[in-house]
């Protein structure tokens, strides 16, 4: 509930008539004003406290968004540890809740991997064959959730999100695309799809309401390549070939936009997925297309000095 996406989901859940009480746990405080929700500031490693909070509340629906994307808020090592710790605590606690009817888990289309010969636009029936660290983290999370479903009989729904972008969402892909100079693969410049944070939050609310019990791809319609995104954002595209990527990656890291392997994979192999099943099962269609999400990414307001606002009001 402390992350951008978690706070957004909490706000949207508060507005739902079917939601009675709401409890959230995160390592960071909420980024939005929550009126009904009760929040617990707990680190992923505080397993016993997390289990106490969850089992005491005994929820009907549990939403696990505790996924740390590498190089979004923390580096790869911490991301892997925090995600695994949180999954163990939350899924372990869920198994002890007698009232639990449904669990909705955040995953990503990175689980399909981009190995040689992998499908251009995989749907939910495609095999899970991650080829990046983030994909492997998400595949582990899905596997743990399916074990929970098998043992308790609770409906477990998995939302495989395309890379989530938004104005305030910490995302290595978003950061890379917003740099003044954007590197792209001159040989491949592969297409990818994304999803807006507000659409991803709507998908979680819809999945929780429907007591989803299967995996679904959540992908904005359309696609874009890195070169096209850079041109839309009026950035300088930097064409790169093999060895150039090593240097560009280091320079980008120094500039504050590290490029983890799953983002590098997007640049070289693309990342698309078929999101049509979400419309069938949940009646959910993202409001923003991929090009629109990219446009919003570049449409940040300029810095507004508070002093100038005061003067304008006076």
């Amino acid at each position: 509930m402390g992350s951008e996406l978690g706070s957004l989901v909490a706000v949207k859940l508060e507005a739902q008539p079917w939601v009675g009480s709401l409890v959230g746990i995160d390592a960071d405080p909420p980024r939005r004003r929550l009126r009904k929700a009760e929040f617990h500031l707990l680190a992923p490693s505080q397993r016993e406290r997390i289990v106490d909070v969850v089992t005491e509340f005994n929820p009907h629906v549990l939403i696990n968004i505790s996924v740390w994307e590498p190089n979004a808020r923390v580096g790869l090592h911490d991301a892997r540890k925090f995600t695994a710790d949180a999954a163990m605590s939350i899924i372990g606690a869920a198994a002890e809740c007698s009232a639990l009817e449904s669990v909705v888990v955040r995953s990503g289309i990175e689980v399909y991997g981009r190995g040689r010969g992998s499908g251009t636009r995989p749907d939910e029936s495609a095999p899970v064959q991650p080829t990046s660290e983030f994909g492997k983290m998400l595949a582990n999370l899905e596997q743990q959730s399916s074990v929970l479903a098998g043992r308790t009989g609770v409906a477990v729904g998995t939302l495989r999100l395309a890379p989530v972008l938004g104005k305030h969402v910490p995302s290595p892909l978003g950061r890379l695309l917003r740099q003044p100079i954007v590197p792209y693969s001159v040989l491949a410049d592969s297409p990818f799809a994304v999803v807006a944070d507000s659409d991803a939050a709507d998908a979680f609310v819809a999945a929780a309401a429907a007591r989803l019990g299967e995996p679904l791809n959540i992908v904005a319609p359309g696609a874009i390549t890195t070169l096209q995104a850079a041109l839309r954002g009026r950035r300088i595209p930097l064409p790169l070939l093999g060895p150039g990527w090593g240097l560009a990656s280091r320079l980008s890291h120094i500039a504050g936009a590290p490029i983890p392997d799953h983002v590098m994979e997007v640049m070289h192999r693309g990342r698309l997925a078929d999101g049509s099943r979400a419309a069938e099962v949940l009646g959910f269609t993202p409001a923003d297309s991929t090009p629109q999400v990219i446009d919003h990414l570049y449409a940040w307001e300029s810095v507004v000095r508070i002093g100038s606002i005061s003067q304008a009001v006076a």
């Binding site: 251009t120 636009r121 592969s190 297409p191 799809a193 319609p221 359309g222 696609a223 874009i224 390549t225 096209q228 995104a229 041109l231 839309r232 693309g270 698309l272 078929d274 991929t290 090009p291 446009d295």
Partner: peptide, 10 residues
């Protein structure tokens, strides 16, 4: 702006 995009299959 809409010129810079590909379809769902790339």
């Amino acid at each position: 702006m809409a010129a810079y995009a590909v379809d769902d299959y790339g």
